[in-house]
Lab assay of single mutants.
Amino acid sequence: WVPTKREEKYGVAFYNYDARGADELSLQIGDTVHILETYEGWYRGYTLRKKSKKGIFPASYIHLKE
């Protein structure tokens, strides 16, 4: 896992994603996520609506905010 280059990196989910394991994070369309790390097509972070739950999710489900 590699920390993100920018201190504040955010994105928005444009697909729903159902977590398949305890380390994964479920997403709903429109969720804003804070991205902490990246690795081979995956991000690690949390949604702003539930900051206490961190997990991994596919990068392809996220539109990055500039």
Rank of each mutant, 00 (worst) to 15 (best):
I62W: 03
V33T: 00
V2L: 13
V12L: 05
Y61I: 15
V2P: 07
D18N: 12
T47N: 15
Y15F: 12
W1V: 07
G45M: 04
G45V: 04
I56N: 04
Y43T: 00
I62H: 02
R20T: 09
Y39C: 14
Y39W: 12
L48N: 11
L48A: 07
K9Q: 13
T47G: 01
E24W: 04
D18V: 14
R49N: 15
T32G: 06
W1Q: 06
D23C: 13
Q28F: 08
P3W: 06
Y17I: 01
W1R: 07
K54N: 08
K65G: 08
G55Y: 04
E24M: 03
I56G: 02
F57I: 01
A22L: 10
I35H: 00
N16Y: 06
Y39G: 07
E8L: 08
Y15Q: 15
T4A: 15
N16S: 11
P58F: 07
S52T: 11
I29Y: 05
I56D: 01
S52L: 07
S26H: 04
P58M: 04
W1P: 07
K53M: 08
Y46M: 03
L27H: 00
A19S: 06
E7F: 13
H63Q: 14
A13T: 04
E66C: 14
S60A: 14
G41Q: 06
K50W: 11
P3F: 04
L27F: 05
V12I: 11
R6S: 12
Y15M: 15
E7R: 09
A59E: 02
K9F: 09
I62F: 01
Y15C: 15
W1F: 09
N16T: 08
I62Y: 02
V2F: 10
H34S: 06
Y17S: 00
K65Y: 15
R49A: 13
E37D: 07
E66G: 13
T32E: 14
S26F: 04
F14S: 09
K5V: 10
T4M: 11
K53H: 12
F14L: 15
E37S: 08
E24S: 01
L36S: 06
Y46W: 05
E24V: 03
G41A: 07
A59V: 08
R44A: 04
G11I: 06
H34V: 15
P3V: 06
L25T: 03
I62G: 02
K53W: 06
E8V: 09
L36H: 05
H63S: 09
H63N: 09
A22H: 11
G11L: 13
L25Q: 00
V33G: 00
W42V: 00
K53A: 08
Q28W: 07
K5S: 14
N16D: 11
I29G: 02
P3N: 07
Y61H: 15
T38I: 13
E40D: 14
K65W: 15
R6Y: 11
T4Q: 09
S26T: 11
H63M: 13
Q28E: 10
Y17F: 08
D23H: 11
K51L: 08
I29M: 07
K5D: 15
S26N: 08
E40S: 09
D31Q: 03
R6E: 12
K65T: 13
I56H: 03
Q28C: 12
Y10H: 09
K51G: 10
E7V: 10
I62M: 01
D18P: 05
V2M: 09
K53G: 05
G45K: 00
K5R: 14
Q28P: 00
Y17R: 00
E24F: 05
T32I: 15
S26R: 03
A22K: 10
Y61W: 03
E37T: 04
V33Y: 01
N16G: 07
N16Q: 11
L64C: 07
T32L: 15
P58W: 05
D18A: 12
S52V: 07
E37F: 08
G41C: 08
T38G: 06
E66K: 13
G11E: 04
T32M: 14
K5M: 10
S26V: 03
Y10F: 11
L36P: 01
L48Q: 03
T4W: 13
Y61V: 15
L64M: 06
V2Q: 12
L48V: 09
H34F: 15
A13C: 11
G45I: 03
S52C: 14
P58E: 00
A13W: 05
H34T: 07
L36T: 08
K53R: 10
F57K: 03
Y15R: 15
T4K: 06
R49G: 14
E7M: 10
K50N: 15
I56W: 15
R6D: 13
I62N: 00
G41Y: 05
G30K: 01
T4F: 09
V33D: 00
G21C: 12
Y15V: 15
Y43V: 01
F14Y: 12
T32D: 06
P3S: 09
K65A: 11
I56Q: 04
Y17N: 00
L25G: 00
Y46Q: 02
L64E: 02
F57H: 02
T47M: 09
T38K: 15
A22M: 08
G30C: 08
R49T: 13
P58C: 07
V12T: 08
W42E: 00
Y46S: 04
G55S: 02
G55T: 04
T38Y: 14
D31I: 06
F57P: 02
E37I: 11
Y46C: 09
R44N: 02
K9I: 10
G55M: 02
E37A: 11
P58I: 13
A13H: 01
T38D: 05
E7A: 11
I56V: 09
F57E: 00
G30E: 01
F57R: 01
S26K: 03
G30H: 04
K51W: 10
G30N: 01
R6F: 11
P3R: 03
Y61D: 01
D18M: 11
T38N: 04
G21D: 09
G41R: 05
V33K: 01
K5Y: 09
W42N: 00
L64N: 04
T47A: 12
A22E: 13
D23W: 10
G30R: 02
L27Y: 02
I29P: 04
E7I: 10
G45W: 07
A59P: 02
E37M: 06
Y39R: 14
Y10A: 03
E7Y: 13
G55R: 01
Y10Q: 05
K50Q: 15
S26Q: 06
F14I: 15
E37W: 07
K9H: 09
K65H: 12
D18T: 13
F14E: 08
K50G: 09
G41N: 09
R49H: 14
R6T: 13
A13E: 05
Y61Q: 04
Y15E: 15
K5F: 09
R6M: 11
E66Y: 13
E7K: 10
I35G: 01
G45D: 01
I56M: 10
Y39E: 02
D18Q: 14
F14V: 15
T47K: 15
H34A: 13
N16A: 13
D31K: 01
R20M: 11
A59C: 07
I56T: 06
K9M: 14
Y43N: 01
D23F: 07
Y61M: 13
